[in-house]
Design a protein around this nucleic acid. Structure first.
Lengths: 188, 188
DNA sequence: CGCGCGATTGAGTAATTTCAAATCTAGTGG
DNA sequence: CCACTAGATTTGAAATTACTCAATCGCGCG
């Protein structure tokens, strides 16, 4: 189980065995059931989450009460309410499980300790934030310049594996289109 | 001029005088004229840019040839093609000046040197990437859950100063709506 | 005065949403 | 094996939102 976390980090920085053991002491390992919430809006967002197994999503409800999915997180992904987590604020996002999941939790305090004690880990988190930024910028580009159909096709290309584990209703919510529109797109 | 850069960094980490002097040696200072390009698509994106004075924008042309503005960068902001810059690829974005501008350029090589030599600076860039991520996530939320009028009003609230220096055509391009639609929104 | 650029307006069209109803599907208990 | 239910998906029709294209307006500047 821990191997997944290690491999994820070592995609970016190499770690000696004892250094990884040290890193690991900063995480909490937990299992969650499908439909279980890891974070609810208006609660403190105490952790960032690395998914070792399963599938989570983060979403928020707008003023009209409509749910918008911000992110899916299958194995090997991180998920949180970044704004609330990094600024120690109360969450606006919700995170719950689409499948039974196994997750490593990291508090902000422990993240900062890790970064202070290990320049490797600070490097890792810097790179992770950078690639996250790039990913979001791509998503913005697709939102402003692609129509519903094109966005859906790009999603399929980008996450061919994911699209099989997620209902179309949720894909529509992620893409910012209604489920009816997505349905009409796919039957062609 | 350098004071602006220093203040920007010291919002996040304190620097001794000699440390800032050291930091400064990694940047190149340049002036640009209105309409001048700092980066063009298909060219290597060699630098990240910190704006000391003036106003820049980044944008790209989609397949249909339509221009979409990704970011405005007034004083105290950073602007680049992050994907191209951080992965040493050829740019897909363009960056040009909306006003005469003064800019500090930072190559990827020098950024990494800075981070390797100064944990303060690595901390700074980590935090900067994190807040960038948060900002983009907010923008995604507004794109998927707000209509044209709401997005425009949010833009005015968020950047009251900016909206006075930028044509409505460009604001429309940033918001992902046509200039005609924006015009119809504003006359109410 | 006349040019050029941004902003506006009008009319028609295209994309997407909404609401309601019908259909399909997987899982459950008898 | 079948009936039944909850959830997801699909379909239809009307309404809304936003876009496109074309024409006009307004204004600053040489």
């Amino acid at each position: 189980m821990q191997e997944i976390l290690r491999k994820q980090i070592e995609k970016i920085v190499a770690l000696a065995d004892d250094e990884f053991d040290f890193v690991l002491t900063h995480f909490i390992f937990k299992k969650f059931k499908k439909h279980q919430y890891l974070l609810q809006a208006d609660n403190p967002a105490r952790h960032d989450h690395f998914v070792a197994k399963g599938l989570l999503k983060s979403f928020y409800l707008n003023d009209a009460g409509k749910s918008h999915i911000l992110q899916f997180a299958p194995e090997d992904w991180w998920i949180s309410d970044p704004q609330a987590y990094l600024n120690e604020m109360t969450a606006t996002l919700n995170i719950d499980c689409l499948e039974d999941s196994e997750v490593f939790l990291l508090s902000l305090e422990n993240r900062e300790k890790l970064c202070a004690d290990s320049s490797n880990m600070q490097y890792f988190f810097r790179k992770k934030a950078q690639s996250g930024y790039i990913a979001l910028q791509k998503r913005i580009q697709s939102l402003v310049s692609l129509n519903a159909k094109e966005r859906y096709e790009q999603f399929l290309q980008q996450y061919p594996h994911l699209s099989q584990r997620i209902s179309k209703t949720m894909i529509a919510s992620y893409l910012g289109i209604s489920r009816e529109t997505l349905s009409r797109i796919t039957d062609s």
